[in-house]
């Protein structure tokens, strides 16, 4: 049938497109295990030196600790705030709901440089010492819209009468939330935590301007990109980070789908 010939052309195109999407990521491990110090073909030979060097680098380890601290705190903060916003917007009608939600979601489309610069100006004006905390505040702000997008899907696919039923059966409002709503949106919460964690771990601009002298993984990478000698180690680090991101995302996706399946939602449809 002609549908198949049409589908074939599109399929070839789509696979090529995926290849384009993955091209840089696929190059990462190739150069991470290449013994040559210059990032170019032809390859020299196989080595794991760069991973060993990476592990021995004290600044990098400090950057890793910082990044994990920031990502953990920011994802918890963003998800907690996101739970409030998602529940408010999916469950209640109140004046100014649309406007307030639009404002909370604004960082999703606002260039990060503007968020970073304006926050920096205020923090410096107030005499606040730049630290991991200031990065956490900024990261929670930009993670919050993504958290809300995920959590809103979880909350809105929830039958409202479930909570009413629990209340009707004698539970308090809090009991109904704890025993019924929370377990049912838990996959969404986990998914939101993981996505926020991934965003924060990868975020450069806010970390670059708001961390003061503390390195994070992206700012450390940025500082090393100028030195050709450091590049192979960065490739090794990138390989590890990409693997970590994929694992986190896969877990997040698993929970999101399981949550959907449990409350009878569709398996497709993601963040947007």
């Amino acid at each position: 049938m002609s549908i198949h010939s049409k589908g074939r052309g599109l399929q070839v195109y789509s696979v090529l497109y995926l290849l384009f999407l993955y091209a840089p990521i696929l190059l990462l491990p190739i150069f991470a295990f290449n013994s040559g110090t210059i990032i170019a073909f032809p390859l020299q030979g196989f080595t794991t030196d760069w991973f060993v060097q990476m592990w021995g680098n004290a600044t990098l380890r400090r950057a890793l600790t910082n990044s994990l601290t920031i990502a953990f705190s920011a994802s918890v903060l963003a998800t907690c705030l996101g739970v409030f916003a998602a529940r408010a917007s999916t469950r209640f009608k109140f004046p100014g709901r649309g406007g307030m939600m639009a404002f909370i979601m604004l960082p999703m489309v606002l260039p990060e440089i503007i968020v970073a610069m304006s926050l920096l100006v205020v923090l410096l004006g107030m005499g606040v010492q730049l630290s991991l905390l200031t990065v956490i505040l900024g990261h929670a702000l930009i993670c919050m819209p993504y958290a809300i997008a995920i959590l809103s899907t979880a909350f809105s696919s929830l039958d409202r009468s479930l909570e009413e039923a629990a209340y009707d059966l004698g539970e308090s409002k809090w009991g109904a939330f704890r025993l019924v709503t929370l377990p049912l949106v838990m996959p969404g919460i986990i998914s939101s935590l993981l996505i926020s964690f991934t965003i924060s771990l990868d975020e450069f601009i806010i970390a670059f301007f708001l961390a003061g002298n503390e390195p994070t993984l992206p700012t450390y990478i940025f500082s090393q990109l100028r030195f050709p000698r450091s590049i192979p180690v960065i490739m090794a680090l990138g390989t590890v980070l990409v693997l970590l991101s994929i694992v986190l995302l896969a877990i997040g996706e698993y929970f999101r789908r399981r949550g959907n399946a449990r409350i009878g939602g569709s398996p497709t449809g993601g963040l947007l």
């Binding site: 999407l21 990521i25 990868d202 990478i221 991101s245 995302l249």
Partner: peptide, 12 residues
């Protein structure tokens, strides 16, 4: 399609 989007922007 979404995976590459979430992986280290700077390195990409």
């Amino acid at each position: 399609i979404t995976i590459p989007f979430w992986t280290s922007y700077l390195i990409r």
